[in-house]
């Protein structure tokens, strides 16, 4: 395959970036998108040009480290992670535009690499169950109805890649936040902190500078794990309850 790549290059957090166009040939349909970039990078190194910086680690779609805006879609045209996108999803001769996630709370560090530490701070603000090591009761002490366990699991699948923010026209991180609120809120263990959790996590979400949600649904469509919109409804319901109970 031959491709034309328009790739965002930016030397550092404060540098001004721009698109640079590269031609690549001998790309195989079985390559992953990132392997295609590896091939390009090897060539750039041989030519004495600094390779393109992009994040990836597990390369099997679970760590959430990778994430590129590919021709206008977060993680590309398939609903998967960038590392699990294969070149067979593109056609020979295509022009592909590659940009970093764009959101002010995700500042660009270099080229296609962004800083997503805002997500960690949202979790730190309440995305946990306060149980110290060693103080846990016997695991079978609290049975969990299967429906709740299953829904908790669906929400817990979030890999924190940031595609939801990248795809959202409002650059909102509501799906990310709601996934955690729902995961913990569906479980009996999560009940004691349920309503304080949603309030503090949302406050942190807003403080990071993410936009508000307007239920457009681009996030779920881009989410490699397909986390559904209904988790946001659960977050909303929990916040409403928090409001009613004076939090």
């Amino acid at each position: 395959m031959k491709l034309t790549l328009k790739i965002w290059r930016q030397d550092g957090p404060n540098a001004k970036g721009d698109f640079v166009t590269y031609q690549v040939d001998d790309i195989l349909p079985d390559m992953s998108f990132l392997e295609m970039l590896d091939v390009l990078n090897e060539r750039l190194i041989a030519e004495g040009t600094e390779p393109i910086a992009f994040d990836s680690d597990c390369r099997e779609g679970i760590c959430g480290m990778c994430g590129l805006m590919i021709s206008g879609y977060a993680h590309g045209p398939k609903q998967t992670t960038t590392c699990q996108l294969h070149m067979r999803s593109f056609s020979d001769g295509e022009t592909i535009t590659i940009e970093p996630w764009r959101a002010d709370p995700f500042p660009v560090i270099r080229d296609l690499v962004v800083d997503r530490s805002a997500f960690d701070r949202i979790i730190a603000s309440g995305g946990f169950i306060s149980v110290n090591t060693g103080s846990a009761p016997e695991a079978h002490a609290a049975p969990v109805p299967k429906e709740n366990a299953d829904r908790a699991f669906v929400a817990a699948e979030c890999i924190g890649c940031g595609a939801c923010v990248a795809a959202c026209p409002n650059a909102s991180a509501m799906l990310f936040t709601a996934a955690k609120v729902t995961h913990l809120g569906e479980l009996p263990q999560g009940q004691p902190e349920r309503y304080s959790r949603v309030v503090s996590m949302l406050n942190q979400h807003d403080a990071e500078g993410f936009g508000g949600c307007t239920n457009i649904g681009e996030c779920s469509a881009a989410c490699p794990k397909g986390i559904p919109q209904d988790v946001i409804s659960t977050l909303n319901a929990d916040l409403r309850h928090a409001l009613r109970t004076g939090r």
Partner: peptide, 19 residues
């Protein structure tokens, strides 16, 4: 807020599902 959350726009952005 939404405008402030993405001051640098995408060069190419497509809607996957939005109505």
């Amino acid at each position: 807020r939404a405008n402030g959350a993405r001051s640098q726009r995408y060069a190419v952005k497509k809607a996957a599902k939005a109505t």
